[in-house]
Design a protein around this nucleic acid. Structure first.
Lengths: 332, 332
DNA sequence: GTGAAAGCGCTAACAT
DNA sequence: ATGTTAGCGCTTTCAC
């Protein structure tokens, strides 16, 4: 076994309390003593046992991260933002994939609480009462990242999705489009149904364009579903002249399907997407996209969580980060 | 505070040892007692404290994962493979980004050991003596994923990179190419210098093509560096007629640069890449690629780690997974 | 089948 | 400035 604090104390001829002080940078230690202890630590190759420390101090310097799918480009960028800030504040991350499955989510929350994490960053689709109950009975801080709680009970970091889509669609309308397709993510997710879809509708309304149900197609964020959506649009009597697609990967599918059918982007059909991941530059034409600051959402969420964990005062529990529309070649 | 095992014991009128038995599924408990305890647990909302358990049992059911960059498509697919198998075996993952920075790597290993992880999955570029020393003095199991240890001391899961590149280049040669570019990753990484590069050379040699240094360009796996490499090739007196590019993202950059310069893929220049992530289908023409079973490498590495952690016997510590060449439209 | 008790390695009062 | 001591919440012998 490796050395314990007790071994170090004996080796240095001091008490374990003193060793603890040295290890934790407590200033109340005479320099000579500190030196003796440091040497003993080095000699024995002592490394503090974080588990014992966690039990004694009730802090693990570990936070849980629940994410739908770490292999998604969008979420892995979020995760990187979380991780970087966590590292900056000396926390480690326990990463869990939920596949947006509610049972898994609840189970993961419980596992993480069992592991005594100091806080949780949660990313998911739908937050319902059961989630909120779990969060509340847990006496650790929770922050939602890129995830809305319609009841505004849980702190969160997002952009203004409604406004972002409103702007994207308005851009399209201003350049002359009247028939605009909308490829959304799953509509049971509030962000999609309540915010993005509403932004779409509001843009249409404010330009006196009537809402046409056949222009809305639900995708599942995959390349394939983007292709299928485009195929469906192209089979309509009057095809749309522009399409908003709610993820970069789907949008690439949409563009390719349009091109495969012999049409051109943006000349025949304009395409605008949503996440602004690195994928936007990896397609021809490059994708005009709502620039959602993915990395920053993760980073800010983690920063917010550190504030809660340190009982710092927080001005606002619901933070809305700015977005832009990043114009590239898939729109005129 | 939440209930402890002692609270449950009192509530159920038994000793904490019995509660512990029930919680851990020990069969030596009378059904009636078990029932009493289970009810008390439910009533109090008791949830075992994994930190205390970890201290007492010296097992945390947590493994460390050191990864260069979770936001990379390639590594996040690996991570998903690791996570899925970890979950299957009831382990959680502490995820750490290293940016392939040796100091960070060493530091992360130490942090993870301090947190008493039961094992570590390590992904990185270069493994040197210092890493090996750390691994050895740690008395936890380590498995390398998509990472080679030239000294073959540390268990690992990889594909046969040398052979894979040999096959890819041979394919190109067989279809008539004699001047073949090689866009590699950083050459200080042994996988690149010692395996992939050697596969390239061996393919050339076995077809009596002499090695030409100007056909090798070092990239950094980004889209931009793929573009730059292509630009450099296209500025040569005799441009290559085919290019092997060591990552999907770089390969897409290479294709775009070629196309932007008015040439066609594969008619003028064939392109073949290496990772076979989902990106291969997101570019036109779709990318012919070495099919590296990314997810599986992660999954198998984690599975191997569980075997070490359970002291199961392991037939081979160095596993080589099969690869294929996946032919798509970027080659003739 | 069940209980008592001794740790696991550390932190955090409280003394001195 | 340093030492003593009592936990933190659990597992794990060892008795009974």
């Amino acid at each position: 076994m490796s050395a314990t604090i007790y071994d170090v104390a004996r080796e240095a001829g001091v008490s374990m309390a003193t060793v603890s002080r040295v290890v934790n940078g407590n200033p109340n230690v005479k320099p000579t003593t500190r030196k003796k202890v440091s040497e003993a630590i080095k000699r024995l190759g002592y490394r503090p046992n974080a588990v014992a420390r966690g039990l004694a101090s009730k802090k693990t310097t570990t936070v849980g991260v629940i994410i739908p799918d770490i292999s998604s480009v969008y979420f892995s960028e979020l995760a990187r933002g979380i991780e970087d800030i966590a590292t900056m504040y000396k926390y480690n991350i326990i990463l869990c994939d939920s596949d947006q499955n509610k049972e898994k989510e609840i189970h993961l929350i419980q596992t993480l609480l069992g592991k005594q994490v100091d806080g949780i960053v949660f990313m998911g689709g739908k937050i319902d009462q059961e989630h909120i109950d779990e969060f509340k009975q847990a006496n650790v801080s929770i922050v939602l990242a890129a995830t809305v709680d319609e009841q505004h009970e849980i702190p969160s970091v997002n952009i203004d999705y409604e406004q972002a889509v409103f702007e994207a669609i308005s851009t399209l309308i201003k350049s002359g489009n009247r028939r605009i397709g909308f490829v959304s993510g799953p509509l049971e997710v509030p962000i999609n149904r309540k915010y993005k879809m509403e932004g779409y509708k509001r843009a249409l309304e404010s330009h006196d364009i009537s809402f046409d149900e056949s222009l809305v197609i639900q995708g599942d964020y995959t390349y394939e579903s983007g292709k299928e959506a485009a195929a469906q649009f192209l089979s309509q009597e009057i095809t749309p002249t522009a399409v908003f697609v709610d993820s970069d990967e789907m949008a690439i599918g949409t563009i390719h399907e349009i091109q495969d059918k012999g049409l051109r982007v943006p000349e025949d059909i304009e395409v605008i997407s949503s996440e602004n991941t690195r994928l936007v530059q990896m397609v021809r034409p490059t994708l005009t996209s709502i620039a959602e600051p993915t990395y920053d959402i993760g980073a800010v969420a983690m920063r917010l969580l550190t504030k809660f964990m340190n009982n710092e005062k927080v001005e606002s529990r619901t933070v809305i980060l700015p977005h832009r529309i990043e114009l590239r070649k898939s729109t005129k």
